[in-house]
Each structure stands twice: as structure tokens, then as C-alpha cells.
Design a protein around this nucleic acid. Structure first.
Lengths: 340, 340
DNA sequence: TTGTAAGCGTTATCAT
DNA sequence: ATGATAACGCTTACAA
């Protein structure tokens, strides 16, 4: 069996209190005593039991990061930054993926999950704000929301301005002289906020440019995957009146769409300009490289982790809304201006 | 404050034992009693404290997955499958990235980390087997190794046959009539097993084909990133005698290499055929699509999780070595046979 | 500065 | 089938 605090105390002929002080507190221990206890710890190869410590202190030192899918590049980049940010606050990260499963999201949030060994939740939700309000109330687990814009100020959240980001992307296509601009990533269900907001930005940009929205140019995508982008773009290129640009709601959609355009016998950006959102590294090495709206995952990670740490320390503080910056990165996929 | 087991017992006028039985055991409880206790639980909105349960049972229900970088597509795909596999065994996954930091690897393995709230470790290591042997001994935390081939049978591990995988990739290039085959991803330090094994496979395939190894065609790469692949391929294409094929030790290297070949004014596969290892989804949508050796991450996840669960239940069982299957996927990047 | 002892919220071992 | 109670290993008043 592993040695316990008591074993060390017995071995060193001191009280548990003193050993505990040496192990964690370092307060009021004479140097001689410290060295003495340390020797016993060494000899018995003692390691403090984190579970016992947690039961006593009420802190696990772990926060949960909940995302739809960890293998989506945007989320894995976010996870990377989150793990780093958490480390600077002394936390570790447990990652959970909901896999687009609403039940799972709710279980995690309501604390119905049997093993909630963490102090707080960083949650990138799929479902609407309305449902969320009810959800988290029973458990009162510290919570920071990620990636959505509008939560009525009831929760801490770090978001990007989705409407504006979409608008900027479409405006970039307009600036390149494109006028027949398609969109991939819309979703009919109102409960998904991200597609709603990006659709809104798309429509705003076109409307402000005096261009009418054509429903046949707006394509749905269920999972923001390469395959979804491929299918949607294939359909667009089969249209009698093809688009001269495609705004994809995510870079992954855009990667699929680019390949579809080529497979249909057209080229990017000559025939069709393409722009995405997320600025994943993949798009910087693709051919052509992908123009995209960059979201600052490091910023999102740092600020949200800082919020969560603050809330864990003081559950009653007022919620804060933070908007992460975004910036358009123009690359080859929108490089050529359309001659009118 | 949250309600405890004792609160429920008091409220229901029964013993803690009975409440505990209702909550978890379900053994020997009359239906009437169950209903009665359940009502009290409902009324007090009682949720069992997982930390207390853990202290008592010695099980957290969490396993740690340790990888170099979570945002490398191969590892995030593995993480996705691991989270799913763990769920079928009743475990959750905490992800840690070592970020190529040997210190961090050692801390995790030796249990020097302060918050080891997990029952076992799934470890995808960078460092050599030799170091590992010493590392895990003091803590005896259940451990399953991933991705390496040769660990002397002292640990459970699920690996691919790296030598064979590399050999198959190079053989595929030979089959396409390529003879001047470069390699990207070698590493000088002997302690990194993966590059050593893949280098060995590369050399074996060439030697068997009667082709001499040319040192200038073997390029190092530190991080198996797109950028490293780009740089290495750029150097290769600047050679007086250019290669007609490149074997990249990872798909990410290959994605960078492909872009570099194009930027140097050549084309894939006409001038240079390219093959990678990992078979990440990105390579199926790139232009050209990437030929690659597919590693079965779902298989690796399921088998390793099964091993770990078994070892947690019985720490003394004999270690097992499992080789995960691999298979070459020929795609466009090696589509054209070289005319001699 | 160090020792004593009371919990933290469960589960498990005795009984009954 | 249920009840009392002792651990699990640690932190921290309270004393000394």
C-alpha cells in the first residue's frame, strides 16, 4: 500500500499536522523540522492523496471543457489554448465531447453526470440560450459560456461577434467585386445560435450592398464538416446560374467546398472565390490558401479561464460579457478581383 | 449548501446505509422503501458527492490521456475515439498535453503532479522506452502505452508496426516506378522511437529494392508540423538532383510538403509523388488528395481502453502487446506511374 | 512552532 | 432488509 500522511508522521515521530505543513503549507516550520520530515517522506516515497485533499478543501483543481467534437480543428485548437491557459491558473482540463447530443449536454450541465470531479465548466454549447437558463440553476456549478453572442447577461461568457464576423467575410467578397454570393452552413432550427447569427450577418452585408437574398444560394449544413461543405458546394455548382463566391460558416466547410468546386471543373478563386470562418492552420497550407475570419482562440481561452477562476473563487460576482476580437485574413482563395 | 446523504437520511427518517443503497447499490431494498427515499432525494435535490465516493472506493472513474499536442489531427482523432471507448467502460477522459516537454511527461508518470484524480493513464510517449521503465515504477499507476512498438513486454501497449507501415509506404512509391525517394521526419536523437522506426522501414524498403540510401534525401523534422514539412520539402526541391517522390513520416508533414512542391513550381504527383502516415481526414479533401498509411484510431482506442480497464481491476495481470492494423490508402498524390 | 482532534460525504463492516 | 459506526486520507480550528 501507498504511504499515508499518518505513516510519515509515525516514521518521523511528529504529528500529522507538522507533516501536512511541510507538504503543502510551508507555514511556520523550522528548517530542521522540514528537513527531518522531508527525509521521512522520501524514505516512505509518500505522495499526498489528491482525493482526500479535495474532499477536505472542496476543490479538485480541474475544470471541464465541453465541446461538440474535439477533432474539429477549431475546437482542438481551442482545447490546446485552454489547457495552457488553465495551467497558468493552476487548473487542469478535462475534456468532454457532447457529439451533438442534447441529452449529454443537459446531463453535464445539470450535474446528473455521476462523476463531476471538477470545479467549473467551460461550455461551448449547441443549444439555445433559453434552455440553458433552466439547466444550470439546480447545480450552481461555476460556468463560463463560449462562442455564442447573446445570453441575456445571466452568465459569464466569452464570445465573438458572430454577426459582424459573417458580415466582414461577405463584405470582403463584395470588395473583390463578387455579386452572386452563396452561403453554406445555414440551419433551420432556431435553437442553434451560431448559424442563425452568421446567416444574419450574411443577409445584412448583402442587403446593405443592395443585393437581394436568393434562397437557392443559401445552403444548409448539419455538422460543419468537410463532407457537408463538399455536398453543398457540389449542389451550388450544378445550379443554372452558378455563384461567383461562397461564404462558408466554417473553414472545414470551406475545405470541402473548395474540393467540390475543383471536382466540378471550376477553379478557385478565378471562377468562385471562397471565404471561411475560424482561420484553422489547414487553410494556410491548402491550395489555394483559404481566406478566413480569424478567431483568437488564445484570447478566448485566457479570458474565459480567468473568468471561470474568478467565479470559482467568488460564486456571487456579477457575470461579465466579453467579446473576442476577430480579423479577416485575405489569402489566395479570394485573391482575384472579378472584372465586371 | 448542497444536501448530503445524512440530510436525506434524516429527512426520510432512515439510516444513511439505506439511502446509500438506494442511490448506488440497489441491493436489498424494498420497493416501498426505495420510493420513500427517492422522494426525499427529489425534495432535497440531493446529488451524491463524487469526491467522497472516490475517497471511499478508491476509484475516480477518470483516466488520463497524455499526448504531445491535442491539436495535431492524429491525436485529436485518437482523443475522440478514446473518449467514446472510455464511455463504454464507464470512464471519462482527462486530456493532458505534454507539449514535447520531457519534464512534464515525467511528472505525470511519476505522480509528481499534484492533482492525479484518475485511475489510470493512456500514454502516447515521446521519450524512449529506457527512461520509461524507471519512471512508472514508484507510483504503480495503471498504464497503457500507445503508438510505440518495442517496450520489452514490461507494459501493456497498443502499437502499430511502425517499421512495416513505413516500409509499405515506400514500397507503394517503388511500385509506382519512383526511384529517387526522399524522406521527411527523421530525427537524430535515438530516444524518439517513432522516427527511428519509420527511418528503419524507409531504409529497409529501399535496400530491398537495391537502391542506395542518399543522406541528402533524408530530412529531419522536429515537430511533424505542416511548417516543418514545408521547409524540408522546399530544401529537397532545391537540390541539384530532385527527388521524384517524398515519403513523409506524418500526414501533417505531407500537407506542408505538398504545398512546398507547388510553391517551388512543380506538381504532385506528376513531378513528385507524396505519401504520408496517419490518414487524417484533411488529406482526403486536399488537392491532390493524399495517399497515406491509415492507422486505425478506433481500434487503438478500444483495445487500449479495454486493457487499461482490465489492469485497473487487476494490477497484477500480465502485460499484453497489441499491434493495431494499418493499411495503405492510395489516392491522387501517388496516382501517376513514372515512365522509366 | 507543534500537537490533538474534529470533520469533509461517502461506502462497508459489523450487527440485528 | 435495515441501522449504527468505523474507516478512506487529508486539512485546519483550537490548544499547548
Amino acid at each position: 500500500m501507498a504511504a499515508t500522511l499518518r505513516d510519515v508522521a509515525d516514521h518521523a515521530q511528529v504529528s500529522m499536522r507538522t507533516v501536512s505543513n511541510v507538504v503543502s503549507g510551508y507555514t511556520h516550520v523550522s528548517e530542521k523540522m522540514r528537513a527531518h520530515v522531508l527525509r521521512s517522506i522520501e524514505e516512505l516515497d509518500y505522495r499526498p492523496n489528491p482525493v482526500a485533499r479535495t474532499l477536505r478543501t472542496g476543490r479538485t483543481g480541474v475544470v471541464a471543457l465541453i465541446v461538440p467534437e474535439i477533432d474539429v480543428p477549431y475546437f482542438s485548437a481551442l482545447a490546446r489554448d485552454m489547457i495552457n491557459a488553465a495551467a497558468t491558473f493552476g487548473y487542469r482540463v478535462m475534456i468532454d465531447q457532447t457529439g451533438h447530443d442534447h441529452e449529454r449536454e443537459r446531463d453535464l450541465l445539470t450535474g446528473n453526470d455521476r462523476t463531476m470531479l471538477f470545479d467549473g465548466i467551460l461550455f461551448s454549447p449547441l443549444v439555445t440560450k433559453l434552455e440553458l437558463l433552466e439547466m444550470n440553476s439546480p447545480t450552481k456549478m461555476p460556468l463560463v459560456l463560449l462562442g455564442e453572442h447573446d445570453f441575456d447577461g445571466r452568465y459569464d461568457h466569452v464570445a465573438i461577434d458572430n454577426v459582424r464576423a459573417a458580415q466582414d467575410a461577405v463584405q470582403h467578397l463584395l470588395d473583390r467585386g463578387r455579386t452572386r454570393i452563396a452561403a453554406i452552413g445555414a440551419q433551420p432550427l432556431e435553437q442553434y445560435a451560431t448559424p442563425q447569427q452568421r446567416s444574419a450577418g450574411y443577409e445584412t452585408a448583402l442587403t446593405e450592398a443592395g443585393i437581394a437574398i436568393e434562397p437557392e444560394l443559401v445552403r444548409e449544413a448539419e455538422h460543419y464538416s468537410r463532407a457537408d461543405g463538399y455536398d453543398a458546394a457540389t449542389a451550388l455548382m450544378a445550379l443554372p446560374e452558378r455563384p461567383d463566391a461562397i461564404f462558408c460558416f466554417s473553414d472545414l466547410l470551406a475545405m470541402g467546398a473548395m474540393r467540390a468546386v475543383f471536382d466540378a471543373g471550376f477553379s478557385v478563386p478565378e471562377d468562385v472565390a471562397i471565404v471561411g470562418i475560424d482561420d484553422i492552420e489547414e487553410g494556410r497550407f491548402s491550395r489555394p490558401s483559404l481566406s478566413s475570419v480569424s478567431l483568437d482562440t488564445a484570447f478566448i481561452a485566457e479570458r474565459s479561464m480567468e473568468r471561470l477562476a474568478a467565479r470559482i473563487d467568488d460564486p456571487d460576482r456579477a457575470p461579465e460579457q466579453i467579446i473576442a476580437p476577430h480579423a479577416l485574413r485575405a489569402r489566395e482563395s479570394t485573391a482575384i478581383a472579378q472584372s465586371p
